[in-house]
Nucleic acid binder design. Structure first.
Lengths: 362, 362
DNA sequence: GCGCTCTACTAGAGCGCTCTAGTCTGAGCA
DNA sequence: TGCTCAGACTAGAGCGCTCTAGTAGAGCGC
């Protein structure tokens, strides 16, 4: 309270020339609103108004403030802003860093979040870093809501998290927990893929499983249902797998070793499909002539000229948009019942599917 | 200062039962240090001492504070902590979200950062989100230092950034800017790969370029030098590429179209090597019988049973450690001259390399 | 002239922490 | 008894913002 506050314009010397040339001027503390205000000759509050884009400043003043800020290199401090407003305007996203589909999603989430004026913080789930830790970090940074991409965690843990912050799960459903879910219509997607194969004349269709991966349970179930309904219950075959390239390659070797290669394979995701494709091709089995192959996700790799994988595209942009919207909506009205957004898949027919060579192989 | 502060223990009801059962209790504000202090009957400052692990609290008090915090679900607020201490203890990492090598690095950085007591914030560089934006976000969150993975940006921009915060570049060098660099000995790595091929008897070695990708300039140069020194200047051939699978596949098609397939190909990274491998194999060219192939990076895909790519491994753990250390060291002494850490590569011989079928093909 | 509204701006109290400069207590010692 | 001193703890001033409540002055109708 005693005396005026001294701003850091170091006497009257222009802060541009000498100072800015030398590295790491962290000796000079980073400029604050106070500095901008002093330079323009207005109050701190008015600078705040300008930076929040709030009404209450004349266009001229606005321009002067912005220019002064630019000149001294001012940039609002997120921490202070968060603390003061008790709103961080940050969305936390947990992803698996090795997942190409997540990469696509993250990119789309950035775009969507920007539209609604939110910043995005990423936290990775990795071999050495569990969901709990990744989520903890986001929580500490006061994310207003969390978007979890394909979370593999317990209902209990999620129950705790959701007491502090809205959570959107992209993929897995958590019945009984107050979590919004955004997902692709897995059943419909699977049927699209199988209808396509069936339409080409395939009856001997094997499924390459995705283990505990997001969506695999639904895909597996839908496969079984479809086969049964077509009277192909005896042809049902589910190969173990886990959404990685190597599990696809293993599946190929297993089929080759057994000498019982089906006319078509429906893989639980693109990565395993590509692993399968690679291994089976090397063994001299031609795709699609000898075996048709359908993946799931439509990751960038699937589109490559030399892969041309027929697959079911998930609506990445749509999933991202729905996830961000769900988070924002729940922020606005926390007491809505949990909502599930189901997005339409789209079959993308490329080069790995064709009619079987002879009807009724096996 | 006008009466005691009222804490949020809502009368005397235990905060456990009813409240915690209903979703989104954001109506009750999140507990603060004040709440913990009130519950234990000590001052806020003492709770702070406990949570900072600072000396000055008796073991008994420490335990009581910790227990009380646990009971009411207290978790320190990063924003407030950052603001008060003007230290965020956060390292910002910029990565390209579609890059498998970056994924490996991020994982290692998490581990290393934890060892030195730092949190990690990720910000992605993507098609729709430039380096400038990704860095801006990290800056706003007050990261104490930035680690940029394979940054593709201008010296000017980096010059500005480095005035506010220490920057470590993993990969590219930025001469004239006060940036620490951590990188693999690209030249040595390239020579290892080429010595291996040369040792097997290859003379007709083509290079698949990496364009503007991290490290490609050095790899290209080292390739040219090596060939020249071996008197193979006339065999020098650099195919255009850009570190993606599709550029590898294109290169394969180009070679096939020209009918001039070398006995060996040294690719600028694993992704393009795998694209090449896939496309050339499909065309009936056998690897390694007809052509040997060496990649660069040793991404997880390279290890797969059906790929078995011979490649040069970058020391991911070492790069991550060096990057984190560089950041911490510079935080401690900002005026040190820029430092370059060069890590040793390691050739990993797998299944894609063998002696050429006949000496002197072409 | 008066009251009224509207725009442009300011004062100052927090937000939830950290951290310096204390105070208070009891043990140790002459 | 008085003194020092270490250990345990507290008071209170920030950190850089936001935001409510307020002021000053212009414009306007009557």
């Amino acid at each position: 309270m005693g005396g005026d506050r001294v701003t850091n314009t170091d006497g009257d010397t222009a802060p541009g020339d000498d100072a800015s040339k030398r590295p790491n001027r962290r000796g000079n503390r980073r400029p604050t609103m106070e500095d901008v205000a002093a330079r323009v000759g207005v109050s701190r509050a008015l600078v705040s108004v300008v930076f929040r884009d709030a009404p209450g400043a004349s266009p001229q003043t606005r321009a002067r403030v912005l220019r002064a800020a630019e000149e001294i290199g001012y940039r609002p401090d997120v921490a202070a802003r968060t603390l003061a407003s008790s709103r961080s305007r940050v969305l936390g996203v947990m992803l698996t860093v090795h997942n190409a589909f997540h990469a696509d999603l993250v990119e789309a989430v950035y775009t969507e979040a920007e539209l609604v004026g939110y910043d995005v913080l990423l936290s990775a789930h990795a071999r050495t870093r569990h969901t709990e830790k990744a989520v903890g970090a986001l929580l500490g940074h006061r994310c207003e809501a969390l978007i979890l991409l394909g979370p593999e965690t317990t209902t209990d843990f999620l129950g705790e998290v959701v007491e502090r912050v809205p959570v959107v799960s992209v993929g897995p459903r958590f019945p009984g927990v107050h979590v919004d879910t955004v997902r692709t219509a897995e059943g419909r997607a699977t049927r699209q893929a199988l209808d396509h194969l069936g339409g080409l004349g395939h009856r001997d269709i094997t499924h390459l499983d995705g283990g505990t991966g997001a969506g695999s349970a639904e895909r597996r179930r839908a496969y079984r249902d479809w086969m049964r309904r077509r009277g192909l219950a005896d042809r049902v075959r589910v190969l173990p797998g886990d959404h990685t390239e190597s599990s696809g390659a293993e599946a190929a070797h297993r089929l080759l070793a057994e000498g019982r290669v089906p006319t078509a394979l429906f893989a639980s995701n693109d990565r395993s499909a590509i692993g399968f494709l690679d291994a089976i091709t090397r063994a001299g089995v031609r795709v699609p002539e000898d075996i048709s192959l359908v993946g799931f996700d439509d990751i960038p790799l699937a589109r490559l000229a030399h892969i041309q994988l027929t697959t079911v595209r998930q609506d990445v942009q749509g999933l991202a948009r729905a996830a961000v919207r769900a988070a924002i909506d729940r922020l606005a009205s926390p007491d809505l019942p949990p909502r599930v957004s189901v997005l339409e898949p789209e079959l993308v027919v490329r080069g790995t599917t064709a009619a079987p060579r002879a009807a009724g192989t096996c």
